[in-house]
Nucleic acid binder design. Structure first.
Lengths: 171, 171
DNA sequence: CTTAAACAGTTTAAGCTTGAAGTATTTTTG
DNA sequence: CAAAAATACTTCAAGCTTAAACTGTTTAAG
């Protein structure tokens, strides 16, 4: 990765090579984003497995349920987690097998079922959640308040822009 | 997600609840980072599959080989991609099966083998690489040069901090 | 030299994830 | 009301990924 060359050079490259300005910089940004997230994610996954006997996706599902004491349907969980229905089916089965999650029938719609945390699941999730927050703080904690706030804002900008680009794709 | 409350409030919370300052903000930052990357990555994976008949990890492996015309050992690829040896074994097998990658014996060490792109693999990778760069530019391209540069720098800060934290874990 | 250790790569079992196809149920439409 | 469409969920095949155990080869130690 070469350092940022600045706009003047980029424009010169554009004129000479016909490459739209910023493509290479966008790529560099993306690769750095990806590798940073992968670095953190790999460590978090490792700790979930070794220290808590669970996995990140199972934790994510339980986090959804923890926020909704009345329970959620599999479909709603699928939408909120942005994963496929089949994925939720499998994760739910493994959590039910562990006694951390329960299935409950819908009152009138026999296709639908609600998932809720069991009391034990709620207790276990509390500990997992606290550990998770501690881990992230440990890994990120030496970032200044100012940098953290800027980064948070800029990621918001990126997310919005990406969503726009994805919407335009279907027009 | 609530808006940032600022340092004063955070310190007050710390005093009252015993939670180290910034834990919650770190968590929010991490979740935003993760969801942003997942959003982009899912789209890129989809396009690799639908438009190019390959996958992101296969592309990543070929990108390593494209940079090293003399070839790389499986172990070196594993280190550079930061994935397990067994993973590289499988990806390499599928790329060899497609005729995009070749295995070559080491001159003296019979344990070792080099991987290189075949001529056809090099051609195919060129097109894939151009498409990939275009896609990222399309998704990221409306971000201002200024924001892009800030984000790149801040991610560098995070990456450095995370690496430091991971090193300290083993002391 | 011989043995032990290190190294390169493979295999395996387990879990995650997806898209596509399939089942059962409910809702909509004519 | 009957047929068609939509919905909720499950199953399946395929691919990615890992950790751990394993094979074969080379290097280091004694």
């Amino acid at each position: 990765m070469t350092p940022d060359d600045g706009p003047a050079v980029v424009d010169l490259e554009t004129a000479l090579a016909g490459t739209p300005a910023g493509d290479k910089e966008d790529l560099r940004l993306w690769l750095r984003m990806l590798s940073t997230v992968n670095l953190v994610e790999a460590e978090i996954r490792r700790r979930f497995r070794e220290q808590l006997g669970t996995t990140l996706p199972r934790f994510d599902l339980m986090a959804q349920l923890d926020r909704e004491p009345d329970g959620l349907t599999l479909g709603e969980i699928s939408r909120r987690m942005m994963v496929s229905n089949g994925n939720v089916t499998g994760l739910a089965a493994s959590l039910v097998a562990d006694g951390w999650v329960e299935r409950r029938a819908h009152a009138t719609d026999r296709r639908t079922q609600y998932l809720t945390l069991t009391p034990h699941g709620r207790f276990v999730f509390g500990r997992q959640s606290a550990a998770h927050e501690r881990w992230i703080a440990e890994l990120f904690g030496r970032i200044s308040h100012r940098d953290r706030a800027s980064l948070y804002r800029l990621l918001g900008v990126v997310k919005t822009r990406v969503r726009q680009a994805l919407e335009e794709e279907f027009e």
